[in-house]
């Protein structure tokens, strides 16, 4: 469902991704790990279509469509979802009003039946409960005054409602205590299924104890320098990234890609 080939991308004119390859098939869970500044969020933002994140070479296909040609909302309507590393606060726009607009648009585009406001409210409350977020948060401004953990739960809550085909989670684990981590992991696991792809971007392997990935990739210097199974995460945990990044492992990504 996601096919990234030799992707080059710049942020505000600065090259960050330098030949990245990744294939995600339905039902698979991939983890992308890598040191700070290696380009993980850049990849997530490029895929979601953020302004100033420009594809300069290669391609990223989602269900055969070139993402670079699509507006961010079109990508979401096709079933792509990004849980942000830093969810933005939007005072004055209530969470509920926001969910209503998002779900109306996405469900209509996907030919799903429209939810009336009673159904929407019920579903939203259920989703809140699933991530242990008080339903009062539905009335507040989007992420307005939420703690770091509440913002992350709010992202997962939205994801549960939007039922994306492909979910990208950018450091959803950072800033969460162990209870919150388990709650969030449970939410993500509940979404796992044969039709869905999940890409977890994370700095630590901690999250991977709870959401066990099928594949683990190491991103460094704007490309994937190593790929493997879930045991690769444990190796990284023990040895850090140094043993991978010190040598010149430039093109391992392509060969080790197990997909």
């Amino acid at each position: 469902m996601l096919e990234i080939r030799d992707l080059h991308a710049s942020v505000a004119g600065q090259p960050i991704l330098k030949g990245l390859n990744l294939t995600v098939k339905p039902g698979e869970v991939h983890a992308i790990m890598g040191p700070n500044g290696s380009g993980k969020s850049t990849l997530a933002n490029v895929l979601a279509g953020r302004d100033n994140y420009e594809i300069t070479g290669g391609e990223a296909l989602f269900d055969g469509k070139s993402l670079g040609d699509l507006e961010p909302e079109e990508r979401a309507q096709l079933g792509l979802f990004l849980a942000f590393q830093y969810p933005v606060e939007i005072p004055g726009v209530s969470n509920m009003e926001f969910l209503k607009a998002a779900l109306e648009s996405v469900r209509a585009a996907q030919g799903k039946e429209e939810w009336d406001s009673v159904t929407l409210l019920r579903k939203a409350r259920e989703a809140c409960k699933q991530v242990d977020l008080d339903a009062q948060f539905l009335k507040r401004g989007v992420n307005e005054g939420f703690s770091g953990g509440e913002k992350k739960r709010n992202e997962i809550m939205q994801m549960l409602l939007m039922e994306p085909k492909l979910a990208l989670l950018d450091e959803t684990d950072s800033g969460l205590d162990i209870d919150a981590l388990q709650t969030v992991a449970k939410g993500v696991n509940s979404l796992r299924g044969p039709e869905r792809g999940i890409v977890l971007v994370t700095h630590y392997q901690r999250l991977l104890d709870y959401i066990v990935p099928d594949f683990v990739h190491v991103l460094s210097g704007g490309k994937i320098i190593k790929s493997g199974g879930k045991e690769l995460a444990l190796e990284l945990e023990q040895h850090g990234y140094g043993w991978l990044t010190s040598g010149d492992n430039g093109d391992n990504g392509k060969k080790d890609q197990t997909a």
Binding site: A48, F98, S105
Partner: peptide, 16 residues
């Protein structure tokens, strides 16, 4: 961008 990334089109996002 946040609103658009949730499927809301640009004009509606601006209005909201």
């Amino acid at each position: 961008f946040y609103l658009q990334s949730r499927g809301i089109d640009a004009a509606e996002a601006k209005r909201m």
